Simulated scan of single mutants.
Amino acid sequence: MSGHVYIGADIGGTTIKLAFINEEGQIMKKWEVPTNTDDKGAAIPDDIAEAIEQVRAELGINPSQIMGIGAGAPGFVETSTGYIHEAVNIGWKDFDFGQILSGLTGYDVWVDNDANLAALGENWLGAGRGCKELIAVTLGTGVGGGVIANGSVLNGANGTAAELGHVTVIPEGGAPCNCGKTGCLETEASATGIVRKAKVAAENYEDSALHSLIQSNELTAKDVFQAAAEGDEAASVVLHQVTDVLGMAIANMAIVINPEKIVIGGGVSQAGDQLLNPLKTAYRKYALSRTAEASTFEFAELGNDAGVIGGAYLVKKNK
């Protein structure tokens, strides 16, 4: 086997997605290993190193072909060193991940926030292919953001650029966020936030179909979208609030970089046009009209592969 090989790693709270990817962006092999969060995630670099070595041997790849590892973590990352200031879902705090993983594998390692890597992946091979100005928003358990400006991912002075989920949208009396603030976008527009808001809204609508799901503790964001589609008033009110505040937050970020594309991904995006149409309306309501004219909304195309593809591209760009 010949040619350069890039390794992408997407570290989540439950699983670590890994992939070997060639120069054209084709996935040669992808797989997952469980995220061991015991002892504040201390064993994760060892687990990644062992998994990579095992698959490298299986594929018959010479170590000299491997250009490096691009890894994404859900937290605050010092991109120049791969140092993780904090990744709450994993347990890392002041963790020298990049250096540890490089020492274990012998490969160069680049690390970035997981949402930034998803943006890079979509920018290389997905919905934002070739865009120089792009905003990517991931709506899942939390809300992630990634920004490509002038063709490069924005990291900021200490790795917190484009943390769209932590834009304050409820100045007073908002729900607490795991970042320590209250009223963050993540508390309003994530899957978790949608469920929380639906529980509150249903209290004002006795005949809401949401009540039975709330009582059985089985309510999901998907259920809220389904109920809204069937005309449930409480669910409809919630989705209007969610898309309105999300459109406002994206419009405010858009004024900074004047994006060509806004890419929406994550589990909540599976709602399709039921999410996208009111989101576009809200965006146009709040955005500078000339800014809105320049940008189109797209759904992310790479799905769960965006992070590992973005990781590979991070290596490709830096080598």
Rank of each mutant, 00 (worst) to 15 (best):
P176A: 05
E203D: 14
S236G: 15
A235Q: 14
F20P: 01
G12E: 12
T296W: 04
E86Q: 07
S236F: 11
T35H: 07
S64Y: 01
L59W: 07
G8W: 01
D207I: 14
V256Y: 07
F225A: 12
D223L: 12
A294C: 08
V88T: 13
T187Q: 09
L101C: 04
Y83F: 15
N277W: 07
A71F: 00
E301S: 15
G126W: 02
T14Q: 11
G145V: 13
A282L: 05
T81P: 02
E301N: 14
V33H: 06
G231Q: 10
N62E: 06
V147M: 05
N22H: 10
L117G: 11
E50K: 14
L164P: 03
I148M: 11
I11C: 05
D38K: 14
L185G: 08
T160I: 08
G145I: 13
G183K: 08
A300T: 11
I16M: 13
D232G: 10
T79F: 02
V315K: 03
R129W: 06
E50S: 13
V237S: 10
N318S: 14
G128Q: 10
G173E: 06
I214V: 11
P63T: 00
M1S: 14
A229L: 15
I264E: 00
E206R: 13
T243I: 07
V33C: 09
E230V: 07
Y313F: 14
L134P: 09
L219N: 08
